[in-house]
Amino acid sequence: MSKLHVSTTINGEPQEFLCDADQSLLDILRGPLGLTGSKEGCGTGDCGACTVTLNGRIVCSCLMLAAEAEGQQIGTIEGMAGEELHPLQTKFLEMAALQCGICTPGVLMAAKALLERNPDPTEHEVRFWLAGNLCRCTGYDKIIRAVMETAADMRGAAR
C-alpha cells in the first residue's frame, strides 16, 4: 500500500505531505513537518498537549488522522506569534503561568480559541474550556489568571 498524499494548509501556508492511513496528524506534524511545538503527553486525547486548530476549532492532533487534514486549515503553536508574541504568550511569561512548559503550547492554543469566541469569559468558563489541558506544575491558578487578564487587556485594546 502506497502512502497517501495530503494537501493542506498549516498556519496559513500551503503544505503537502505523505502519510500512512493510520498515522495521526500529530505524528506528521512532529515527524516529517518538524513542528515539534505540539507535544505528545498521552496519545489518547486526555492531556491536550497536542492541541491544534482544525478550521478554527481546537482538536487533539493525536486523535485525528493525518489524512483527514486534506483540504483543511490547521493551526499550530508555531503559527501563534507574528512578529511579536500573541498577548496570551506575553501574559503567560509576565505572570509565570508556565513552569516546565510542556503543556504550554496546548494551553495557549486552547486559550486563544476561547478568547476568539468569548472575549469576556468568567473564571468558571475558562476552567471548563481548559479542562482538557492537563498541567501538573502550576495547579492552574496562574494559567487561569493569565487568560482572564489577557482577555481584559484585549477588550481594553479593542475599545
Binding site: 486525547g45 491536550g48 492541541t51 482544525l54 476549532r57 481546537i58 482538536v59 487533539c60 486523535l63 485525528m64 486552547a110 480559541a113 476561547l114 471548563f128 474550556w129 481548559l130 479542562a131 482538557g132 489541558n133
Partner: peptide, 9 residues
C-alpha cells in the same frame, strides 16, 4: 463527552 478538544470531534 470529553474536553473542548474532544467536543469538536
Amino acid at each position: 463527552i470529553g474536553s473542548t478538544q474532544i467536543q469538536g470531534r
